[in-house]
Each structure stands twice: as structure tokens, then as C-alpha cells.
Design a protein around this nucleic acid. Structure first.
Lengths: 347, 347
DNA sequence: CAAGGTTAGGACACCGTTGTCCTAAATAAG
DNA sequence: CTTATTTAGGACAACGGTGTCCTAACCTTG
């Protein structure tokens, strides 16, 4: 209000310091400051220090808009995560963000509703408006052929998080879903279960089929043939888990264990059992998949497969920010045995 | 690869169409296109239509970087949500994003770890780099005095989501936490409970004290004085809920009902009860707060208070994008009675 | 002492818009 | 028939940086 004196500020029109303010205070040319910001050569250690000190002192941050416009990089990457599971979204965002922080790159992320009808349009608009330097595609978008085609057409770098099959030249991070399911079914078999129900996840996620196949492979290896009654379609969520469990528990010869393709499904199975007064694990063993916080919150705590979601996201961002020869990075899962699985009741 | 002919593209250096490409195709000046994009006057309906049609046809999207640099608006708002609850973060992001979509404004959001040490620095860097037009502050950041002071110093518009007390001139959205807790405790009293335990939430969230005071108010109104043994400090999470319940159930004269300040806490209470073989709700009633998905996934399904988190977020974004005289918008909560509460056992 | 690399600084165009100011035709109002 | 208002278009300077090219001082090294 009162700073009408003409000599108040030297050059600035806005309140923010610019690269030229820094250069003036550091006694170097603004070009040198630009070199420091972009980690380029031809700057002596001494001047670099000085510039860095001034920047910290006055709290200078280069304008992203200006850098994006002038340079050919926006220093942003976009995370596409159209997943209805809040925990999954949270972990993926946290992982990508953590890795971005190390490179001083910004992550732009926004949740997309499950099966956003215009996901492709949203992505295209995002790319054209925000000019991300690359994208991380989480499931199920990572397996959307139209999305992939559009990104390849535009030659925008991207990586895939937990995709279905590999795509030539597109880096990806994943766990071995098939093997993980195999491990869990083997655990149940080792406990003595012969009739094991399986609730399949949403078929639009590639991992659903992978997990089913691992389960069936373990059964086959134990000499147990597939039983259509014991494989039920679910949607990764609680409601479908409860419905699937209800159907299987109504069978004349019900399973003694149910392996659910997600912890949410497993929670539905647990509630179905509780409603019928079936004790878990004494009368029915229940196993999940994910090791979400939910697994330790339900009763009894779930035996499940731990997926290192956050580390998968970190690795995915790493493949994008520091591309190398690696095309696929596979992380380990682990079997977490808690209290929801036990030997079957003595018939 | 093969478009080496000089006449291939008219002006463009990058592949992206620019405002000038649009103007050429629409047969108007580029200034008119700019007016259409910014919804300014002095454009006839006919030309506006034509420009819009061309933009849709060639998939033109104005460069955010250029707009931000030239104009004084970035068409972005930032969401600051340093909350450890994935569901809460997800809902808030979804709500803000939904409202932003209507105004064609982009939301920049990234999860901050609980108690990010340098949250203030992160916010300052975000502001200086991305130049958001405003911020939505979710709890607990909305009650961080240093953050508030910094934003006011910079005169950046912001709104607060579920804050503690009001701040002059700063819009906010909230529910009546005190009344909601009062309602729940009244429900338990109406069922006949006389000894009601309460697990307080994290004290750095203003709502924790509000909920406690509503609970005590209801007790007082029923002629029941506060009992220090029946008020335990928690942290909004499962582990603290279990610990608090364990402590209260060890009491020589344990409560017949426990009201938890969040559903996560309530889940901990449930597990503590299950471990001791205490039937819920027959021997112990348990109530939660939030109506997160968790509330319907645990056993038995939780009686709880529904908070319209997504709508609170939508309303918050609305206050930011369409500011008016409204300074506080209060949304309704509701009591959801499920199966975890019942009359106390007949002593 | 010449040749060559390193460390700067300067000049200038450019990125794709918006803001400002000016001009002028077409239309409406007085 | 003037005089405003609406509807354009044009010119030009920002916005805050980056990329490119040139120059030159200062070290090395042979």
C-alpha cells in the first residue's frame, strides 16, 4: 500500500526473485546461474557454491513454467493410476513421489475413477497441457492398448507398473504373480487342505489371470485337478468376496480353505464365514493377497502375500528418470503367515 | 522419417499445434482464439463456435507453461494433504479433482508423509515452482500456524478443510465434530450404556478435541461425570486402538461400550475384544467415526458417524475457485447404525 | 611459445501464450 | 446523421527462463 517510492525494488515486477536477481547478488552472469541450476559444466566449484548459497538465502526457485517453455523438459512426470483401491493409490503415489524428489522432478498425479470412461482423453489432455517428460502407468491403465498406442505414437517415454505381458522396449516393474499364488496355494496344501476355493480378481487386471494360473499350477503339481465350483469370479473388492464365499460355502461339499486374490476379497470371505458361524481358521482357512493394512485389521489377521507396492513404484520411477538397459525389474514378494490359516478340521 | 519435404508443416517447430495453427485453420486472428480460450468478451457466437470446433478437431490444448508464464494465473491449485490415512487422502483428492475439472483447472497433489519434517519448505518450493493459483489445506496442515502465516504473508488464496478454529477471512468447510460425537454417545446412552469408554484421536488434529468434548457433553447431559479411566489417548490408528481397548478391558470395572474417534481405532478395539473372546456387540458395543470402507469390512460391521469427506473436499475447492461471501460451509454428518452396537449385557 | 581445454560472460533468438494499446469496420442508439 | 458500443485484428512488449553461438581470459601441456 505504501511502497510507492520508485526506488523500492531494483528490477522485479512480480515479488518473486528471478535468475537475474540471483546473478546480481552472486556477482556472476545470469547465464552462469542457469548453468548451476541445470548442473551443466563450465562452472568453477567456487562460483557454484556461491550461487547455491545465494539461491538458498533468498529462497529462489526457478519458475517451472519458464523452464518448461524455454527448455524442452518440464521436469514433471505424470502418474496414471486409475485404481479404486485407496491404499494402492497412496502407496504408488508415495513411491513415485519419493523417487522424483531425488531428481528434483515433480510428480503430477490425480486419482481417476474406476473405469473413467474418457481416460484416454484425460491422458491426452494432461500430456498436451502439462507436457510431462514421461509417464508411469499403473494397472489397469498399463494394459490399456489404446493408451499404449497413443503414447507410442507420440514417442513419450513411459514405464509400466505391474503390467500383464511385456512390450518391446517399454520398461516395467513387477512381482511374479504366478509364483506368488503358487506359493500361497502350496502353503495351504502343506497344511493338508485338499479342497481349496479361489476367488479370481477383476479380469481387466492382468495379475488376475496370473494369480489364477499360479494357483492352478500348484494344485496340478499336487495331483489335484481343477474344480469349476471352487473357482469364482470376483472384482478385487469386499462385496464380490462375500458373494463368492457365500456361493462356495453353500456347496454340498464346501472347501476347507479359500484363497482370495486380494485382501479386500478375503475380508469379504471372512465376513461370510462369520455370518454363518464358521470359525476361522478352525473350520475354514482364508488367505489374501497384497498385505494391505487391512490384512492386519480384520479378524483374524490374514495370511497373505506381501507385494512391495511402494518399492515397485520407486523402481518404476527410477526406470523412467534414469533409463538404462534394464527393461524389466522384478521385485520379490513374500508369504506372510498370520492367523487365518491352519490345518483343515479333522473330518 | 519421410517428411523431409519443406512444405510439410507450415510453421510448427514442435509437433504440437499452437494457438496460431488454430487461428489459421479457423480463419480468425490468433488474438481471437486467445479470447475464446479465456472466455473473454468481444467474440461473436459464430466465431467462437468455429474456433471451438477447430480446437476439438485438431486436439489443441493450450500450453499450461506458456499461459502461466504470460498470464498471471497458472490454472492450477495445489492440495496439501499430509494425512496417513489412504482412504481419506483418496477421497479428498477425488473431491478436489472433481470440482477442478468443472473449471478446467488442474489439481496438483502429492502425498506428504505423516509429519513431513520439512512440510513448510515443501509447500514453499511448490508455490515458487508451480505457482498455484490457490491451495486447499487438509488436516493437519490446515492447523499449522507456520504454514498459515507463510500463506498469508504471500497473499496466496487458500481454503481449509476441516480446520480447528476459524481464521478471519479464510474460507473453510467442516462438519460439526462436537455434535457428531454427541450424537454417537447419545445413541450409546439410549441403548442403556452407563460406562462408555472413549479413545481420543491424534491431538495434532483439531477434530480430536472437538469429538472428545461432544462425547463429554453428552455424558454430562445424562448426568454422568467424566471418568479418567474411560478416556484414553489414541492416534487415529489401529495399533493405538488396540492398546487403548486392552487397557480399558483390563479395568476392574470395564466399560460396556467403547466409542472410538476413528474407524481405524474401532478396528483395533474389535480385535482386542476378539482376542479376549468378548462378543461384540453382545458383551461390548463398539462405535467408530468416519464411515470409511473399513467400517463395513470388519466384523461386526461398525456403527459409526459418516463424514462426507468427498463432498467436503468438493465444497472446499468450490470456495477456492468460486469465492463469494461464504466463509464457512458446514456439511451434515449422519449416524450409521450397524451391528457393532447393542444394549449392554444384563448385569 | 604455440596449441588446446576450461571457465566464464554477452548477445540474441525463442518457447507459446497473455496483456495492453491502437485501429477500424459494423452495428446500435440518440 | 452523429455518437457510442461491439467485434474484431494487429503490433509489440512482456513472462523467466533455455539454447546457441561468439569472444576472451586463464590455465595447462607439449
Amino acid at each position: 500500500m505504501s511502497d510507492t517510492s520508485p526506488s523500492a525494488s531494483p528490477t522485479r515486477s512480480t515479488g518473486r526473485p528471478t535468475i537475474r536477481d540471483v546473478s546480481r547478488l552472486a556477482g556472476v552472469s545470469f547465464k552462469t546461474v542457469s548453468r548451476v541450476i541445470n548442473d551443466q559444466q563450465y562452472v568453477s566449484a567456487e562460483k557454484r557454491e556461491r550461487v547455491l548459497a545465494i539461491m538458498a538465502e533468498i529462497g529462489f526457485q526457478p519458475s517451472q513454467a519458464a523452464r518448461a517453455l524455454a527448455g524442452h523438459r518440464s521436469h514433471q512426470i505424470a502418474l496414471i493410476c486409475d485404481n479404486p483401491n485407496p491404499w494402492y493409490v497412496y502407496e504408488v503415489q508415495a513411491g513415485v513421489r519419493e523417487r522424483c524428489g531425488r531428481d528434483n522432478v515433480r510428480m503430477i498425479a490425480q486419482p481417476y475413477d474406476r473405469a473413467t470412461p474418457a481416460l484416454l482423453d484425460a491422458i491426452v489432455a494432461l500430456i498436451d497441457q502439462a507436457h510431462p517428460d514421461g509417464l508411469v502407468l499403473a494397472p489397469p491403465a498399463c494394459d490399456d492398448a489404446r493408451v499404449i498406442a497413443e503414447l507410442e505414437r507420440r514417442r513419450i517415454p513411459f514405464v509400466r507398473l505391474q503390467p500383464g505381458g511385456p512390450i518391446d522396449g517399454v520398461p516395467a516393474t513387477s512381482i511374479d504373480n504366478d509364483q506368488a499364488a503358487f506359493d500361497m496355494t502350496s502353503h495351504l496344501l502343506a497344511l493338508g487342505h485338499m479342497r481349496i476355493g479361489f476367488v479370481v480378481g477383476d479380469r481387466s487386471y492382468a495379475s488376475s489371470d496370473q494369480r489364477l494360473s499360479g494357483h492352478l499350477r500348484a494344485l496340478e503339481q499336487a495331483g489335484i485337478g481343477p474344480d469349476p465350483d471352487l473357482v469364482r469370479q470376483g472384482m478385487f473388492d469386499f462385496a464380490s468376496g462375500k458373494a463368492a464365499a457365500d456361493a462356495m460355502l453353500d456347496l454340498p461339499h464346501p472347501p476347507t480353505a479359500i484363497f482370495a486374490a486380494s485382501d479386500d476379497i478375503a475380508a469379504g470371505v471372512l465376513v461370510a464365514a462369520h455370518r454363518r458361524g464358521i470359525a476361522v481358521p478352525a473350520m475354514l482357512s482364508v488367505a489374501g493377497f497384497d498385505d494391505a493394512p487391512l490384512a492386519q485389521v480384520v479378524w483374524p489377521p490374514l495370511t497373505t502375500i506381501r507385494q512391495p507396492v511402494r518399492n515397485l513404484a520407486i523402481a518404476a520411477a527410477d526406470l523412467l528418470l534414469a533409463p538404462g538397459d534394464t527393461v524389466e525389474r522384478r521385485l520379490d514378494h513374500s508369504l506372510i503367515v498370520r492367523e487365518s490359516t491352519a490345518p483343515p478340521p479333522a473330518a
